[in-house]
Design a protein around this nucleic acid. Sequence first.
RNA 1: GCGGGUGUAGCUUAGUGGUAAAGCUCCAGCCUUCCAAGCUGGCUAUGCGGGUUCGAUUCCCGUCACCCGCUCCA
Length: 549
Amino acid sequence: MPSTQAAPTPETPVKDMKDIVALCKRRGFVFPASDIYGGINGFWDYGPLGVELKNNLRDLWWKRMVTCPPIGPDGHPVQIVGLDSAIIQNPKVWVASGHVGGFSDPMRKCPKCGHFVRADHLWNILFSESEWVNSLLQVFEPHTGRIDTPAIMNWAKGKGKKLAPNLAVVKDPEVVMSFLATRVNGQPNAPLEIQEIVSHLATAQLNATGLQDPCPRCGGALEGESTFNLLMHTYLGVSATEDDKAYLRGETAQGIFINYKNVMDSSRVKVPFGIAQTGKAFRNEVTPRNFIFRSREFEQMEMEFFCHPSEANMWFDFWVSERKKFWEDLGLKTDNLLMREHEADELVFYSKRTFDIEYHFPFNGFDEKGNKQFGELEGIAYRTDYDLKQHAEHSGQRLDYLDPERDNERYVPHVIEPAAGLTRGVLALLCEAYTIDPSRPSGVYLNFHPKVAPKKAAILPLMAKDGHPEKAEKLYMELREEFAVDLDIKQNIGKRYARQDEIGTPFCFTIDGQTMEDDTVTVRERNTMAQERIAMSKVADYLREKMRA
RNA sequence: GCGGGUGUAGCUUAGUGGUAAAGCUCCAGCCUUCCAAGCUGGCUAUGCGGGUUCGAUUCCCGUCACCCGCUCCA
């Protein structure tokens, strides 16, 4: 086994994303969406085995959350109910959640600091709210039309450096000022407007880009106008007017918050309790990349846990450790997992604490010291009462809780949210399972835990005669009631073992000559390729036990 | 979104301005008492669109997808 701590050396085989993607397509786990039309960026289809794997992961999550939730600190199972909300909701939901900001206003983005500005308000904002513009305007008198080059240079090297680090004149004062001088001297009869001066100061390569507009926050050159929206939209009804615009959900979480009252009123749940949901979500990712890791249509497994504010931190810690255990139980190696708490400046505005569960995907690679790098698999966020308060305010509905166990205290519950990527989980399982083994015919096998394996077992008659196929089919008919199993008769036995290795089937039951005499079969274990003989009547028990382990 | 690279069968690779070749895989049959064996037969490809040309997989342009690096990831 290659060491998983250090960066791979030329001697240790490397898990290459290219190979994993190829295996996924070849064996029917994941296909490029719209493949026969040349594909479509950011979308993937799950093939016959991929959908089994994905369903298995989703079902295991559901079981762990809803059917059989963990034991809480009080020694009793925590209370969690399920939900399946619509992908499309009233657009106001996404306004309340903060996903839809300026609606369809044209926005301009700063590539340096990520700030968004409304395009039609840019210059107003620059002159009234921008700290660096106000500071700049104090060092020279723009209305005279005269450019005080030394004063601006001085500002650029001093105050400007602090206030507008990405402004062109701050980064490269000589070149920018020489462009400005050229303009002044070239057209002496056309005095510069103040706006034009500021644009000049934001322009690093005038000839290549033309005049640029600066970011009010950092001075970086803004990108062109776009009606940027993270959310995909559609139009309801046949007459597609702006009034009919609706959004595809960008996360399943909001469907839970807006049903908080319905669930409270119908399910006899008491705080603390959770509502769990899995399903598709959609985002207009700028750059879908890294196979199914970042795609525009993906699946989430989210649970919102509602609790008293004073207990929020306790439940946060509870769910962080519970969720880590979940992924480990599915076979993700502990040293491929990273638990990382967000720094204060990294937290999104609604969150008080966030813990990422990150996985070392092959494309994450290693840093220069050889340390593993990681990508997000799940985030556990303490969302405070932000979402319920937002929806209470925007909907006008009361979303607080009258707590009979706390002297009828009335409060808006705080929320701990373990939010996992189902499709990212599938990728992590695939990457973890992918095992290079040059010694076997397939060269590679998928080391899935039996719980997640898309096929639990294959039933293989040693030969396609002498009653083997009939016996095999009998066993198959018994097992298929309870397990996803394959019956494979064609070709020689070695080929069939190899095929099952490559799709990660943990067990193969082989019917041979001895089976015909005493009704025993051999079990071939995928990882060791070792075989033992058991009674045909014990096969189901055998599988059942392996699935539990 | 920017820069670089790639694109011939399911995979790995040939080749050509004039009928696109092979091995493996896959499918059918035979054979075979345990790890991609053998024999026979079969399916399948120049990402897509346009241009130049009598003729383009080959040359040119565009586009799409994928990979790498930036950027992005409320």
